[in-house]
């Protein structure tokens, strides 16, 4: 193995590193499947919309948790801020054009993310965990108390959402528009996240996750990087929340609670975090299970979910994709014995 070392740029590892951002052959399959779903299950598009929103939300968490390694329990705070931004603006008659209100949701969530990130990311470990939990509880309590503006415990129902681009109606009973709309937003956001992850910025986030001390030593502005990442992630979570409010035409306290924060964490870990497609796999697995089991046997579902979490934490720390990768590696090792 001396020859490749003569030109470091031609070393196999360097080549793999330089080409890692190029699209893989299998990547379009995900999006083709999403389109197939639209035609194959016209009666389950409401479920499909919810699934796509969960994927987007889990992707935003992946950026923070999977790539930057920030363990937060309060990510639903930004989802809720986005949902309430859309909901309150529409309900009180200020603004309800879908695409621009989505951008407003992203901006407000990003501001909340920036503000709380500047404060929270000074700490780490248990303190960070507690602070993120308390921030979310604070927002939930505020939404509960600000009855006049947020609708309190009941939330804001029947939001007047106008036609998308003045053409396509949001029909809550037959959510075709919602599905395509959410799928489009998800695709654009995914391209953005993919670019961020493979950029030098994304690489430095991984560096911070792996060894913060060393990143400080090489002169990387660790705090600024983390806060930037937190803000971007908050904006995307806000978009997911805004989409949720538009697709359902209501907002309530469930968008802000610990249940949603725990759910997105489970989805991401189930799929495999720090892998981008983990959010897709996890959301599909979780939502399909929840869809069929949770309504029939809610208690047994909770028991099973708990068991699943314990098993993942003990044996499959990289989720479903991690198991897949391990199997693939074993399979390849068998075929090409060294």
């Amino acid at each position: 193995m001396i020859a490749p070392a003569l030109n470091p740029a031609l070393h196999p590892a360097a080549l793999a590193f330089a080409g890692r951002h190029q699209p893989r052959v299998w990547e379009p399959i995900v999006w083709i499947l999403a389109l197939v779903f639209y035609f194959a299950f016209p009666n389950h598009l409401g479920f499909g919309t919810e699934l796509l929103i969960t994927i987007l939300f889990a992707l935003s968490l992946d950026l923070v948790l999977g790539y930057a390694g920030i363990v937060t329990l309060g990510h639903a705070a930004f989802f809720g801020v986005g949902a309430y931004t859309v909901g309150m603006l529409a309900y009180h008659g200020f603004w309800n054009e879908p695409i621009s209100s989505l951008m407003l949701a992203a901006i407000v969530a990003a501001l909340v993310g920036l503000g709380s990130g500047l404060v929270l990311l000074r700490t780490q470990g248990l303190t960070l965990l507690m602070l993120s939990l308390c921030t979310m509880a604070l927002l939930e309590e505020a939404a509960n108390l600000g009855h006049e503006y947020t609708g309190g415990f009941d939330g804001l129902a029947s939001l007047p959402i106008p036609k998308l681009l003045g053409l396509f109606e949001f029909n809550p009973l037959y959510p075709r528009t919602q599905y395509v709309y959410v799928l489009t937003v998800l695709f654009i956001s995914f391209l953005f996240i993919r670019t961020v992850v493979y950029s030098p910025f994304g690489q430095s986030l991984t560096g911070i996750r792996e060894n913060t001390l060393r990143m400080h030593a090489v002169g990387s502005p660790v705090r600024a990087r983390l806060v930037t990442c937190y803000t971007i992630s908050a904006a995307i979570a806000g978009i997911a929340g805004g989409l949720w409010a538009q697709a359902n035409a209501y907002v309530n306290l469930t968008t802000l609670g610990l249940d949603r924060a725990a759910m997105v964490l489970i989805v991401l870990i189930l799929g495999g975090c720090g892998r981008m497609y983990g959010a897709f796999v996890g959301a599909v697995a979780y939502m399909v299970l929840a869809h069929f089991l949770a309504k029939l046997y809610p208690t047994a579902w909770q028991l099973g979910l708990g068991f699943l979490l314990v098993v993942i934490a003990l044996f499959a720390r990289n989720g479903i994709l991690g198991i897949g990768e391990a199997l693939l590696r074993r399979f390849r090792a068998k075929r090409m014995p060294r």
Binding site: L65, V71, L73, G125, L126, L129, A262, L265, I266, I269, T299, A300, Q302, L303, L305, G306, F307, L308, L309, V310, I312, A313, L314, R317
Partner: peptide, 22 residues
């Protein structure tokens, strides 16, 4: 890592709640 401990113990909490309810 912290994350695994959090997941594991949340899982235990869910299982306890469900078993007691059942």
């Amino acid at each position: 890592a912290e994350l695994e401990q959090v997941l594991f113990t949340i899982g235990l909490v869910f299982m306890t709640i469900a078993s007691v309810t059942l």
